[in-house]
Design a protein around this nucleic acid. Structure first.
Length: 344
DNA sequence: AACGCGGGGCG
DNA sequence: CGCCCAGCGTT
């Protein structure tokens, strides 16, 4: 499975990046360890997520769930709580399932082989390569967005990174450049990609391989990588009823499809017997990557204790309050709405 | 092979 | 306001 490109002619590039990394590596909490659990968590947290955005979540997560067993034995809702605000919530669901997978299928010991790591829920080729190389000496490039950007610039390669073959294409290029120490090389590519070879305004003057970079010599760095597919955000409307009385309010848990998987939300429909208690309606706008949400939230204050009691006793909704809502994971706009209601 | 999935930051 | 980010699972 591993390939030998020791005579590729491009190894000096990888070695320069490696040497740069030895001196300039970012001081990050997961750089001090080869614990596969911590590396795994960090890889999942930082998928499609900037370090500055996910660092707090990562630290909190590791503190609460320090090992596979603790994570596997936790409730899914609590795992989701620690994922609150990070986005892509299926990552939290999958990371929890994968922990149970490691307990059940590998007796709690993290699998060391790439093909076994790849079987874990939520672990794809990138993450499996990263864990394998960083923790177990595997010799695979962890090809991610940084690899696409750095390699496409070094080789002035216009292969479309939107193409579904981009991963295998840039994996081939990566093998040409990658030195023996794949783990450090992979982390070098992450750091050079985020600190120097940035998407916008790259710092080519500080780059250890700018003399080897074809795009730089052509003064066409900003032309790479090539990406054709554009995603357009569609409009989508959500309707909610914020049903409350004396600081308590009603919620339910979302399904694991569509957006905000398994997060909590207000009532999407209003039971007829509560219609007399409608006070007002606010409209909240919330922009997701692929959707522009218009969220209409109607405030319903149940002023009759009898109605509240009979309703809360017999229906399927969860009763919570302003003190306890922090204990559940709400979508960003709904959390903001609750906090604003708290001020009133 | 194509698409859907969050949220934040930057130009 | 569009683009990008330590990608992955589903269809």
């Amino acid at each position: 499975m591993e390939k030998d490109h020791t005579n590729s002619g491009f190894l000096h590039i990888g070695n320069k990046l490696l040497n740069w990394y030895r001196k300039n590596a970012r001081d990050l909490p997961f750089r001090q360890t080869k614990d596969p659990y911590k590396i795994w968590i960090c890889e999942i947290v930082f998928q499609q997520t900037r370090i500055s955005q996910g660092l707090g979540h990562y630290n909190n997560f590791i503190k609460r769930f320090p090992d596979v067993k603790t994570l596997a034995e936790a409730e899914e809702d609590e795992v989701l709580l620690y994922w609150k605000g990070l986005g892509y919530y299926s990552r939290a669901i999958n990371i929890h399932k994968a922990a149970q997978q490691i307990m059940n299928d590998y007796q709690g010991t993290f699998p060391e082989q790439y093909e076994e790591i790849l079987k874990l829920k939520g672990v794809g080729k990138y993450t499996a390569a990263a864990i394998s190389s960083i923790c177990f000496g595997g010799r695979m490039p962890a090809v991610d967005g940084n690899f696409y950007r750095v390699l496409s610039r070094i080789f002035a390669d216009d292969f479309d990174i939107s193409n579904s073959k981009a991963f295998s294409y840039f994996s081939e290029l990566a093998f040409l450049v990658m030195p023996e120490s794949a783990g450090d090389f992979n982390q070098a590519m992450m750091d050079i990609g985020s600190e120097v070879c940035k998407p916008k305004k790259p710092l080519c003057g500080e780059c250890p391989v700018h003399e080897d970079c074809l795009a730089f010599s052509l003064q066409k760095v900003s032309d790479f990588p090539v990406k054709t597919k554009k995603v357009k955000a569609e409009d989508f409307a959500l309707q909610y009823y914020f049903v409350h009385r004396n600081g308590r309010f009603l919620i339910q848990q979302r399904k694991d499809d569509f957006i905000w998987k398994k997060l909590f939300e207000f009532l999407p429909e209003l039971p007829a017997e509560l219609e007399p208690f409608i006070r007002n309606t606010k409209t909240v706008f919330h922009k997701l990557s692929h959707k522009n949400l218009t969220i209409e939230i109607t405030d319903v204050e149940v002023t009759s204790e009898a109605v509240w009691n009979s309703f809360t006793e017999q229906n399927q909704y969860i009763v919570t309050d302003f003190e306890a809502f922090h204990e559940r994971s709400f979508p960003k706009p709904l959390e903001s709405y609750i906090q604003n209601s708290l001020k009133d």
